[in-house]
Amino acid sequence: MTCDALVIGGGPAGLAAAEALLAAGRNVTLAEAKPSLARKLLMAGKSGLNLTKSEAAETFLAAYGDAAPNLAPMLTAFGPQEVQSWATDLGQPLFTGSTGRVFPTAMKASPLLRAWLARLTAQGLELRTRWRWTDWRHPEFIFDTPDGPRTITPKFTVLALGGASWARLGSDGQWAGMLQNAGIPLAPFRPSNAGLQIPWSAHMARHFGAPLKNVTFRAGPYTSRGEAVISARGLEGGGLYPLTPTLRDGAPLRLDLAPDLTTAQVTDRLNRAGPRQSLSNTLRKALSLTPAAQAVLQECARPLPRDAAALAAVIKDLTVPHDGVRPLDEAISTAGGVPFAALDKSLMLRSHPGVFCAGEMLDWEAPTGGYLLTACMATGFWAGRHAATFATAEA
């Protein structure tokens, strides 16, 4: 069968591409391997859907690291303000937290997704769920469907296939083999926004599930202030995730357990505590270290130095031994995928005119906090708009 515009992948990037194509007057068929759309988005929204982050444009863009120059045009066209306008246009009121993170008032992804799908369906989107892309004989795309194999020959295509984490939700990275067979170079998948594997001793078991709050995390050139949770497998949480790029390469993790005090101030408070108090009480009263923070301190630096200045130095720069980040499928997102060098400025594959790529399947990464979803949507809208323009020029 033939079709006008084909979008493969029903996550935020694919839906954004479909919306842009529909707005340009194209007939759009969207194929999704799973029985329902945007499963990863729905999972992320269970704990509060962080849509984007309200901050200065330069600060926002810097979160994308080396990929920032490539993503800049897309994030300029569809950035934090555009995300917010898009959501409110769908009837979803928003609020901005104290850190600048923007959430739907409902806090869930499901009302927003329902409204989005209703709008797209009303605009004529043809959905094909349980359609798994299995082969590519350009310009033909072959799918395994509930009714058997189906071949589609579209005028142009947007691929929005996700990364390679959370395979159970659809991002399994199996598309990589087909692109490589077509001669498209790929950067290897690597975990991003991943927990850290730490071989805790048995003494840490009673602290599993406890948060490390008000801590500065450091690894290589990266610094992040926030929170992480102690788990049986190590540490995980938003304060830690921005360090993934260097932690996965073996950089040591260092903690500042008293980030609001200088080393001299910590030393002074320890000296003023007096010798009669236990060390635990001294750390709690003088420095407000929680039992969880004290446990990590003891775990990683026992026996602690008796000298106040030496102990202060450890508290301000505690090295935490680790065994690397959690496996790829347990990561929130992935680095790697289609390199920007394989694409032109419209996100079209240089080697395959009429085939565009968007979302997490591109080789970029960013920390959690609204950056991931914003860039997925921005690249989706960008690819969809340029695909429509390409089709018009080809007509």
Rank of each mutant, 00 (worst) to 15 (best):
V28F: 06
V325N: 02
L127F: 02
G220N: 07
A67T: 04
H322N: 15
V83S: 04
P339R: 11
T290M: 09
L6V: 05
V314Q: 07
Q81R: 15
L90N: 05
Q294Y: 09
S165D: 04
R130I: 01
V28K: 03
D147Y: 12
A308K: 10
G234Y: 09
A387V: 05
T319E: 15
T88H: 05
L287C: 00
E365F: 08
T59V: 15
T374E: 12
W175D: 00
W116I: 03
F156W: 13
A312D: 01
E55A: 08
L255V: 07
D323A: 15
A264V: 12
L61N: 08
M43G: 05
A342V: 06
A31R: 04
R248D: 04
N214P: 00
A160R: 09
S278T: 15
F189D: 06
R218A: 14
L261F: 03
P321C: 14
A210Y: 09
L311H: 03
L21Y: 05
A13I: 09
P259T: 01
P259Y: 02
L94K: 08
A358Y: 06
M361G: 05
G9W: 03
G177L: 04
R137W: 00
T379M: 10
A77Y: 07
G9Y: 05
C376S: 15
P353F: 05
M178N: 00
A205M: 14
R248L: 13
A62D: 13
V325F: 06
G48P: 13
L253V: 04
L318G: 12
A187M: 08
G25L: 05
D256S: 09
A388Q: 01
A176D: 00
Q92W: 08
L42W: 00
W166L: 06
L343H: 09
L75G: 14
L161T: 08
L127A: 02
A388H: 01
G195F: 03
G209V: 13
P321M: 14
L113V: 01
G45Q: 07
L71W: 10
R114M: 10
H352R: 14
T216A: 11
T29Y: 07
Y222R: 14
P259K: 01
E32K: 10
A187S: 12
L311C: 02
G226V: 05
A232F: 02
R302I: 03
L343N: 09
A18Y: 08
F390S: 07
K46Y: 04
V7H: 11
G209E: 12
A24G: 09
D144L: 11
T389H: 10
A388L: 01
R272I: 00
R385H: 11
L362Y: 12
T244G: 05
L289W: 05
C376P: 06
Y241K: 07
L235F: 03
V229E: 09
G359T: 10
T334S: 15
W200C: 09
A77H: 10
A18Q: 09
W166F: 10
M1Y: 10
G238R: 11
D144M: 10
H352V: 14
A202E: 14
F156V: 13
A24P: 00
C300N: 07
S346V: 08
N181A: 15
L311I: 01
E360D: 04
N181V: 00
F381E: 02
A62K: 12
R269E: 00
P154T: 10
R190H: 13
A182G: 03
H322L: 12
L22P: 07
N181T: 10
F141N: 00
R218Y: 08
P291H: 11
L22A: 06
